[in-house]
Simulated assay, not measured.
Amino acid sequence: MNCFSISVSGRSALILLEKKCTDPQALCRVLEDAEADRGIDFIRLRGADGSFTIGRAVSELQTFGEKEARVYAERGQRLVKTMRGLKKLIIAEIDGEAFGPGFEIALACDIIFATASSRFAFPEVNLGVIPGFGGTQLAARRVYETFVKYLVFTGDSVTAEELYAKGIANAVFADGASMNAHTDALCARLSEKSSFILGLAKETLNSGIEMDFDKALLFEQNAFTFSFSCEDKREGMGAFIEKRKPMFKNRWEDLRFEEE
């Protein structure tokens, strides 16, 4: 079943999520392919028909026992861990509903854009279960615990403006066209930066939040030190001193940072 429509423009891959997408592993494979493609620096996720969703229908979940539920959750959590582990930046563009797994996938993205009419929710409590794709943990790492508990306990939907006020959404737009145009412009601007350094910054942020403070500081120190061994450091600082535009060229495919 073809669950995704994929197109590449410039350095960005746009992945459209269809409502019929039920297998998190399928999206995992698409993302891993994009990560391996040297022509792609940014990954954009968007709902094909406005809704931002992935996962099984309630009628299917109703037939699950504990064994099937664990396999389903493991696949969903593998997806969000893959998303957070990719070196390329992932941007969610939401113009509609992002409920349940759709909300969880959005939270695994690096940047979240949404239209003013979009709504977000963890409705699982109304079905007698809880979120299983990492939503409770992803949300708690982005915003205050009390707000996350309210969303999970009530199942209430919230607006994009509310998520923006809480620091979860990065920006809210009047409509999909203005949101997409803004994302185009952002990707064009970021494409002028070092893709390696953007990936290193993402890894440092995502890894550090899982560590205690001292270990996180050491991780940052090691990453910072490693960046000084790269050609892009010499190019960036040289361009600054010479008052010219830098021409970065380092890529994750060619360099590998390993934590000491």
Rank of each mutant, 00 (worst) to 15 (best):
I91E: 13
D95W: 08
G96C: 11
A98N: 02
F99I: 04
G100M: 05
P101A: 15
P101Y: 08
F103D: 12
F103E: 11
F103Q: 10
E104M: 05
A106P: 03
L107G: 04
A108F: 05
A108E: 09
I111L: 11
I112N: 15
I112W: 12
F113I: 00
F113C: 13
A114Y: 04
T115W: 06
A116F: 06
S117T: 13
S118A: 14
A121L: 05
A121M: 04
F122W: 03
P123C: 10
P123Y: 10
E124K: 00
E124T: 03
V125I: 15
N126T: 04
N126L: 07
L127S: 09
P131D: 07
P131Q: 05
G132N: 14
G132S: 13
G134V: 15
G134L: 12
G135A: 13
T136L: 12
L138E: 11
A139F: 04
A140L: 01
R141M: 04
R142N: 02
R142I: 01
R142Y: 01
V143C: 00
V143W: 02
Y144N: 10
T146G: 06
F147R: 10
F147T: 02
V148K: 12
Y150P: 04
V152R: 04
F153Y: 00
F153Q: 10
T154D: 10
T154I: 04
T154Y: 01
T154P: 01
G155S: 09
G155L: 02
E162V: 09
L163T: 14
A165E: 09
K166Q: 08
K166W: 07
G167S: 07
I168L: 13
I168H: 10
A169R: 08
A169K: 12
N170I: 06
V172R: 11
F173M: 05
A174N: 14
A174S: 12
A177V: 11
S178V: 03
S178L: 05
S178G: 01
H182G: 15
H182I: 11
T183Y: 14
T183D: 11
T183P: 01
D184G: 03
C187T: 12
A188V: 07
A188K: 14
A188N: 14
A188I: 07
R189A: 09
R189S: 15
S191A: 08
S191Y: 04
S191T: 01
E192A: 15
K193P: 14
S195F: 15
F196G: 02
F196S: 15
F196I: 13
I197D: 05
I197Y: 00
I197C: 07
A201F: 13
A201Y: 12
A201S: 13
K202T: 15
